[in-house]
């Protein structure tokens, strides 16, 4: 039975829905500005600043750097997250619940404090400003996201299917490869997208841990926000946003397919 929603409430929902996305969208028209000043409404129309974004090494190399770091973060957090999820769900050992608390904590802890701590640790290890250091740092917060999506997928997996496979004569490795892995693939993909998006957007850890030669796109944007405001910033914002939206749409599609997979 669909319940009636009072008209006032419907209007409220519509307004909130608009406010959730509309404000952010202003950066898109601003990125097509013809004037060197970043403002709204933009003056004229041109693709000039897109040209600047892709040719100015400051922006283009930061964008490439961001992609590189996000990709590596995705791989590392998938490895860690999958291993942990398998251990937590399939393994038999004590202390699962404190371990779970530990793994999920980065989602909710003040990132600034983590950033400061990593800054000290990285100074000792002499990896400040390195790609590897950024990947490790981003993995700290991407890893719980992968863990959540993998452990959900593993829990939903009917372990009877694996027993059935074993009873039909399949070895453990074969069962994992042909039964378990295909069934948790949507979970893996969702986790991967979460990890990638998270690293692609990450700012605070990056502010502390990047160096003059290794800058990610959000860090360059951050510098720009605080100093000169050229429409290239709006271009970067638009691109960052579009990449994320495309990735999230993929995640949602996978989510729908995952539902369809359930018998």
């Amino acid at each position: 039975m669909t319940r009636n929603i009072p008209l006032g409430l419907k209007i409220f929902g519509g307004v909130v829905g608009m406010l959730l996305i509309m404000p952010t969208l202003v950066v898109i028209p601003m990125s097509f500005s013809a004037s060197p000043l970043l403002k709204f409404p933009p003056e004229g129309f041109s693709l000039h600043w897109y040209g600047v974004f892709f040719t100015d090494p400051l922006w283009s190399s930061a964008a490439l750097r961001s992609i590189q770091i996000a990709a590596l973060t995705t791989v590392l957090s998938l490895l860690l997250g999958t291993g942990t999820a398998l251990a937590m769900i399939r393994g038999r050992f004590r202390g699962k619940s404190p371990i779970q608390v530990l793994i999920l904590s980065p989602i909710i802890m003040p990132i600034v404090v983590l950033a400061v701590g990593l800054y000290f640790v990285y100074s000792d290890w002499k990896i400040l400003g390195s790609v590897g250091g950024l990947v490790l740092a981003h993995t700290v917060i991407a890893y719980p996201l992968v863990y959540i999506s993998l452990s959900t997928a593993l829990k939903a997996l009917d372990s009877k299917l694996e027993d059935a496979s074993a009873s039909l004569g399949a070895s453990k490795a074969y069962t994992f490869r042909r039964i378990t892995l295909p069934l948790i693939t949507p979970g893996l993909l969702t986790g991967a997208l979460f990890a990638f998006t998270m690293s692609w957007d990450e700012l605070i850890l990056s502010i502390f841990l990047t160096g003059p030669t290794v800058k990610t796109l959000p860090v360059v944007m951050w510098d720009q926000v605080q100093t000169e405001l050229s429409p290239t910033l709006a271009v970067a914002a638009t691109i960052v946003m579009l990449v994320t939206i495309v990735l999230i749409m993929c995640a949602l599609l996978i989510g729908t397919r995952r539902k369809a997979l359930k018998p």
């Binding site: 959730l20 996305i21 404000p23 952010t24 969208l25 202003v26 950066v27 601003m30 709204f40 998006t197 957007d201 700012l203 959000p218 944007m221 951050w222 926000v225 910033l233 914002a237 960052v240 946003m241 994320t244 939206i245 990735l247 999230i248 949602l252």
Partner: peptide, 18 residues
């Protein structure tokens, strides 16, 4: 979901425009 995943920096910056 969309703002949940759109860059916080972009969103916050957009608010300054408003």
């Amino acid at each position: 979901l969309l703002p949940f995943f759109t860059s916080l920096l972009v969103r916050t910056y957009a608010w300054t425009v408003w």
